[in-house]
Design a binder for these strands. Structure first.
Lengths: 238, 238
DNA sequence: GCAAAAGTGTTAAGCTTACACCCATGC
DNA sequence: GCATGGGTGTAAGCTTAACACTTTTGC
């Protein structure tokens, strides 16, 4: 009855944001934590920790996400449970989540950390196409998370999880283009998202360059993606 | 470091097949196991067992599936890891898989069991819309598996996992109709699956009623669904 | 022949895609 | 004015959906 006692359960999270470069298009980025002990000491790894008896996996993901970034995600979903026998020297099953953070939240938090001088230890943000060597199977896990994101962007509104409260359609389109890796026709993109009816037009405009662009915000009454019939405690994010 | 030692890991599988009634349309059905001990003694539950240290979750799912049904699945995919604190009196994380079985395999196996008199103990097949009271959160798990199946049927070929080696387009359409719960236009259905190019026309026909129908078989070189970049050991089914 | 299922043809509607063009602002 | 991104118009092409129609069998 206690045959599985020597299998430990960890929870890790692929925390994604869209970092806006000053020059080119925005790029997907994620925080990694430098390991301080064996195995894989000094290597970078996904944020996470052991699942505690008092806490559900999704709560553990939200908690370690907050500990690593100081932020709450706009989207949080289970990715996969990885449990291959040889994925760690000791037997570990990792329940992995993926989360989206708003780019402005991340930038504000990094600025605040820098100003106060008390940033989380051993945490660093990396562009997804410029990752260091990673511990365990975390590289494959990130690949799978990116595949899921790119898929889900096609049939849900998850891309809006990266954007601030108000944004222009060009900013939303830039987010899609960065995630999908290809250019989208501005005219058609506009019509598609407008007719989808998930965006709320504001009366405000973004000025500063050329013709002012209308600001939109997303309808927070609607989930960013259909979670199906999962129990509420499996899906709550805020 | 051993904080998660009192969390045990189980693996369960929602094993689905399409049972063809003599009269009406085929219905989804699954095997359940009657529990012999507490908690939930005498209640029906999903087939499964504890994850052993020597075996990966997907192997455990395939093994318990074979123990319950004597069969190998045509499709096997991880569904979700359920880990809410209160889902069991003791703390259990269940990595749940969902699997498809060919209807002819299931029928042959049931007939064989009946003939030999040595059917697996405490196993019974139920139609999904006529389930008994279930142990734990297994009812919600089944609902989620059915939601996933219905979704996946729309953008993959998983429905073919229910059918025998050779089948008519009407049989394939019946499978889709049963899963989706609505009628499909035979003419349009034919064109869609033919143009998808995943079926191989045979020179054989199903006779016995009215005009003979051409038999098709599926292209076994192709996966029934896109698994993304998951490692092969996470996806192998045969 | 007749009923019924297999299979083909045809057309309307809608959606996607490409791209021409006008609008409003900063410089 | 003019360059530039914001925003609208429009038409071709493809996909979906509805349904009429022909073919081939069992009875």
């Amino acid at each position: 009855m206690t045959r599985s006692a020597d299998i430990r359960v960890a929870v890790s999270t692929v925390i994604l944001t869209l970092r806006r470069g000053d020059d080119g298009p925005p790029v997907l980025a994620l925080p990694l934590v430098r390991r301080t002990r064996e195995p894989f000491a000094e290597r970078w790894a996904l944020p996470g920790g052991w699942l505690t008896p008092e806490e559900s996996p999704v709560d553990a993901a939200a908690r370690t996400l907050a500990e690593t970034t100081g932020l709450a995600p706009t989207y949080l979903e289970q990715l996969y449970a990885f449990g291959a026998v040889d994925r760690s020297p000791t037997r570990v099953v990792s329940i992995v989540y993926w989360a989206l953070l708003r780019q402005d939240d991340v930038e504000a938090q990094i600025t605040a950390h820098r100003a106060s001088g008390r940033a989380p230890e051993n945490v660093e943000w990396f562009d997804v196409d410029d990752l260091p060597a990673l511990a365990f199977d975390h590289h494959e896990i990130i690949e799978y998370a990116l595949w899921r994101l790119r898929n889900k962007v096609g049939y849900s509104r998850v891309a809006q999880g990266f954007l601030p409260a108000e944004f222009t359609l060009a900013e939303l389109r830039e987010a899609y283009e960065s995630i999908l890796g290809r250019a989208l026709d501005p005219a058609n993109f506009r019509r598609q998202v407008e007719s989808a009816g998930n965006l709320i037009r504001t009366d405000r405009f973004r000025t500063g360059s050329h013709r002012p662009a209308r600001l939109y915000r997303d309808d927070t009454d609607l989930e960013l993606a259909d979670r199906g019939p999962l129990r509420p405690e499996e899906t709550r994010t805020r």
